[in-house]
């Protein structure tokens, strides 16, 4: 299942227990899967048309009046078109808006750069007071959507278009904002991912194990507030960190983790992500490979960081 599907299903679940939850979309409900909520709760679904800025402004006002609005569109359109509204009508007044985007990253594939999002983590992290999340699978998406509704304050969540493997087979696994999940333990190096890169980190750890390198793998589903304790422990226990994200290397997961590590326990780090470019059209797998986000690239980054480790 894709994390966007998990989002759509979680919204319906939420709608059944919390009548205060509203959902807003901008002519993409078939793609964002908010159509599932619209079908069951037509009176609480607000179609805004292709007008993302207005949509976010409306959500701000609804939140100010006590509603819990979830706003959705593709990550690129919502974050880029409505950034001023996210500042003025959400972050600045600290209004309780939940911003859940789909089609994050380049793994949306063939539509190409205008629909891909390589900067949404950075933008969301630059909104004071926002919790910023990027779940890796259906279990974590569901849990974090439910958690977002309980949390008082703005939340950003990026979900994706392609199907992703299940990372958490226990559907009742608990998730807290700002608490990373340790998926694998090892003492040589730590691989930290979020979203689709978590599965790639696990594959890379397996490959590294073949050559006797034992990697710790963290799912940093919350980029902000980043789990500083988990980062410090990773630095102390393994002495080397690789951050992997489907995002520009500027201002996303790597920046959050690096700051925590630099402040608490500096160790050699490597960063796997998109390097100062927009991508292109192609299949999701082709693009992840070409832009250096798959397991073999992570393995090479781990080998580099191990050479730098004292």
């Amino acid at each position: 299942m894709a994390t966007r599907d998990a989002y759509g299903k979680a919204l319906v679940e939420l709608g059944r227990v919390n009548p205060n939850v509203l959902v807003l979309d901008a002519d993409l409900s078939k793609s964002t899967k908010t159509n599932l909520f619209a079908k069951e709760f037509p009176g609480r679904f607000i179609e805004c048309g292709i007008a993302e800025a207005n949509m976010v402004g409306i959500a701000g006002g609804l939140a100010a009046a006590g509603k819990i609005p979830f706003v959705s569109s593709f990550a690129c359109f919502l974050m880029n078109k409505a950034f001023d509204q996210l500042r003025i009508a959400v972050a600045y007044p600290k209004w309780n808006v939940k911003v859940v985007t789909t089609h994050g990253g380049i793994s949306i594939g063939e539509d190409g750069p205008s629909q891909q999002s390589v900067e949404d983590y950075a933008l969301a992290c630059a909104l004071p007071g926002f919790v910023v999340t990027s779940p890796a699978d259906e279990t974590s998406t569901r849990a974090l959507v439910l958690r977002a509704a309980e949390h008082v304050g703005p939340v950003y969540m990026r979900t994706g278009r392609p199907r992703v493997p299940i990372i958490y087979p226990d559907k009742n696994e608990l998730f807290e904002f700002g608490r990373a999940k340790r998926l694998l333990d090892g003492g040589d190096v730590t691989l930290i991912g979020c979203g689709v890169t978590v599965a790639e980190c696990l594959k890379a750890a397996e490959a590294l194990a073949q050559s006797g390198i034992r990697a710790r793998v963290l799912d940093m589903h919350t980029l902000k507030p980043v789990d500083r304790e988990a980062v410090a422990a990773a630095a102390r226990d393994t002495g080397a960190i690789v951050c992997v994200e489907e995002h520009l290397l500027d201002g996303g997961l790597g920046s959050q983790v690096a700051r925590a590590a630099a402040e608490l326990a500096p160790v050699p780090m490597e960063f796997v992500g998109i390097i100062d470019t927009y991508a292109e059209s192609g299949t999701p797998d082709e693009l992840l490979e070409k832009y250096g986000l798959t397991a073999p690239h992570i393995v090479r980054a781990a080998e580099r960081v191990l050479r730098r480790k004292k």
């Binding site: 359109f77 539509d111 190409g112 205008s114 292109e280 059209s281 192609g282 299949t283 693009l287």
Partner: peptide, 26 residues
């Protein structure tokens, strides 16, 4: 829409200079 093709899924001036603008974000 295939990897490496100038015919990107949305107009891309980087690959087809006869396109006057890279659009796709309405």
């Amino acid at each position: 829409r295939k990897l490496g093709s100038p015919l990107q899924g949305h107009p891309d001036r980087r690959t087809v200079p006869a396109l006057e603008a890279s659009t796709g974000s309405l």
